[in-house]
Design a protein around this nucleic acid. Structure first.
Lengths: 219, 219
DNA sequence: CATCACCTAGTACCGAAGTACAGGTGTACC
DNA sequence: GGTACACCTGTACTTCGGTACTAGGTGATG
């Protein structure tokens, strides 16, 4: 879910063009609607027009309090290095010009979603000590804990988790493993309890995320 | 799901060590059990001991007929370039020595799962024309069609698809979007119909796969 | 004005998913 | 022998997910 916050029709059109195909997009044109949206829809990414009335560096920090999971990209006129650094310190994950090419914006959003920072090369060294190491550390912990949890499962449970990650139903799993559907349910209940997951949907996402984390880690 | 086929206890222990943490693992020690397993459990990856009684290059082709989705890694003693090439032509996706280091085997399996080939540099040019281009082309088509399908959705449908990809229940989605659960169901039915998907689990996997495909494509 | 796509939502129904409770086997370990 | 654990299964139950059928409101488009 991507949220676009701008009062400029021209920017809205340009940015929408860029992120089409990356998931659902919603747009707001005023600060109060933005603040509500941060809570209500909890977007994965926020494209924030810094010229939106009422928006400043402090607004970014305030928005992050409302929903720390949302990754904020600031879009503005050309700004000085100092202003851009301040923005990053406030919590934005990327900084772009508002007249950015749509395909480039798409790349920015994808990168941001992956936990990267979108920042000018010249600013990288200055920001790295403050933020970069911290972010990388966080990512590593998430990946490791996720893997560790899956390793807690028994052989049979891992088998079933893998099939859930394949999108199979209980009936299909039962047929493939030559056991009853009831037993599949029993194993699933155990998996949910061990991993602290609510249902098969969460498990499927955990499994795919874990495979992806492994892949990232290997490269 | 990873299937290991070997009659050597030493190889079994070594390989199992390597792939632990990459998902469910099952082992068979004979050719007939292997042939059944290829159909019954449809493993994502098969680690095939070329010294398993009855196994030859022809066996690989036969196994691929049983389940073309399974990616086969051959493990053998050191073989000549010619034999290795023949194996790749028969359909294996990777070739390793049976005494491979477990961590390296893990990298191999992960790479293979991602659709790559694990092949000695020296053989790459010779195989590239025959297989590489073909594989890369297939991947591109899959990714593109998947993306195209998601783009067919309406704004509201994409919103809901994104939330499903987030693991949310109908009730949670309804609350976030301030609509009734009934309406969420209505949108979901439309999404399933448009994308030819059976249920929310399939949709979640499609959504995450699409995001991942985008990411790959951008890099 | 008619039409269509989209968003919304009601009732009714059915099957899938998941839990509670109970019980069975086999294996490994002290 | 006792204990622990993995694995398998049954009955009974509740909740959730998904479809069928229906239908009102809106905005764009011809």
């Amino acid at each position: 879910m991507i949220l676009i916050a701008t009062s400029s029709a021209e920017s809205l059109a340009r940015w929408t063009l860029g992120v089409t195909g990356l998931g659902a997009v919603l747009a707001v044109g005023q600060l109060d609607a933005l603040q509500q949206g941060m809570i209500r829809i909890a977007p994965a990414v926020l494209l924030l027009d810094m010229d939106l009335p009422g928006v400043s560096c402090a607004t970014v920090a305030s928005l992050r309090k409302r929903n720390s999971a949302t990754k904020i990209v600031s879009l503005s006129r050309t700004v000085s290095d100092e202003v851009e650094l301040t923005l990053f310190r406030s919590g934005v994950r990327g900084c772009c010009r508002r007249d950015i090419d749509p395909p480039l914006l798409a790349r920015v959003v994808v990168a941001i979603q992956q936990g990267e920072l979108w920042i000018r090369r010249s600013l990288t060294p200055r920001l790295l000590d403050e933020l970069g190491e911290k972010l990388r550390h966080e990512n590593r912990i998430v990946a490791a804990s996720s893997l560790g949890r899956l390793a807690e499962l028994t052989l049979r449970e891992r088998e079933i988790a893998a099939l859930i990650g394949n999108g199979d139903s209980n009936k299909q799993i039962a047929r493939q493993l030559a056991i009853t559907e009831r037993t599949v349910k029993a194993h699933l209940t155990g998996i949910f309890r061990k991993l602290g997951i609510a249902d098969r949907l969460g498990l499927a996402l955990r499994v795919t995320a874990t495979v992806e984390a492994e892949r990232q880690h290997m490269q």
